[in-house]
């Protein structure tokens, strides 16, 4: 019984990784080679065409190829989420490590700050931040990144504190290593697994949040395509062109799903003690 469940999850994990990889490749294609650029040109005469051999997912109200739009949207979604995760890692991890190593008032301050940000309803404040700073992908990265910082800070702080009690760290301190070196040489490498897992999960959450921001008009601005905005535009056209509502939504769900499953599988890889 247990063997059956393990094998099933192994397959799902692989499928997830493969899909996520496909999305990444698509996004890379668009940004690097411009292979889809022809499909992104306006062509009013060909607008609202149903899916066909020429246009696999049909065309949108301005005649653009929906597949090209989804691929370009993938680049935006992944770009924004990666940026947000980078901010979370770049600021959150040092913050958490410092808090754990230094302790005392600094530690309390970081804990308070974390609690404060966690207390705020994240999507609402992301919307507020993006509306404050103006719409656009750069500001979306910042708005989402702000909420990744406490996630990674809390994770690295908790992980570091566990590690600090371990023998090899005590040995290093006895040997006279400074706290910064200990953090860099001993704590960080041992946290990498946890960080990778969390980063994958935050990536999935970031893509969903970016779609939400784009839906209300605060993400990537026209003419750059984004999945959330495509869904908003599609709402009035569901009677004439239902594929416009289905395709971006499916792309979104599949990407988020793939990344979440990938994250779960990675968690099992890095922490074999975690049992279901």
């Amino acid at each position: 019984m247990i063997a059956t469940a393990r094998r099933w999850r192994l397959d799902a994990g692989l499928a997830a990784a493969a899909t996520a990889g496909l999305v990444v490749v698509l996004a890379a294609l668009v940004s690097l080679t411009g292979a889809f650029d022809a499909g992104l040109a306006l062509n009013i005469d060909a607008r609202l065409a149903a899916p066909s051999a020429a246009h696999w997912f049909g065309t949108d109200p301005l005649g653009r190829d929906v597949l090209a739009m989804i691929a370009a949207g993938a680049r935006v979604s992944l770009g924004v989420s990666l940026g947000a995760v980078a901010i979370g890692l770049g600021i959150g991890v040092p913050l958490g490590l410092v808090a754990a190593v230094v302790g005392g008032v600094g530690d309390e301050a970081v804990a308070r700050l974390n609690d404060l940000v966690f207390a705020m309803p994240s999507l609402l404040l992301a919307v507020l931040l993006a509306a404050t700073m103006g719409p656009g992908p750069a500001n979306a990265v910042i708005a989402l990144g702000v909420f990744n910082v406490p996630v990674f800070a809390r994770l690295s702080r908790a992980g570091a504190r566990t590690l600090l009690a371990r023998d090899f760290v005590l040995a290093a301190r006895v040997a006279g290593k400074g706290r910064l070196r200990i953090a860099l040489e001993h704590l960080l490498p041992n946290l990498t697994g946890l960080l990778i897992v969390q980063a994958t999960i935050q990536l999935a959450l970031g893509i969903a949040a970016e779609a939400g921001l784009s839906y209300v008009g605060l993400g990537a601005q026209p003419p750059a395509p984004s999945w959330g905005r495509m869904l908003n535009d599609a709402q009035t056209l569901t009677a004439i062109a239902p594929w416009l509502a289905w395709c971006p939504g499916i792309a979104l769900s599949v990407t988020v799903l793939a990344l979440s499953v990938l994250g779960e599988r990675l968690r099992e890889v890095f922490d074999p003690r975690a049992r279901r």
């Binding site: 969903a208 939400g212 839906y215 509502a245 988020v256």
Partner: peptide
């Protein structure tokens, strides 16, 4: 459940 939580709630609303 994994699939269900990956579906964005606003898209589900539209559908």
């Amino acid at each position: 459940a994994q699939v269900g939580l990956a579906v964005p709630n606003f898209w589900l609303g539209i559908l």
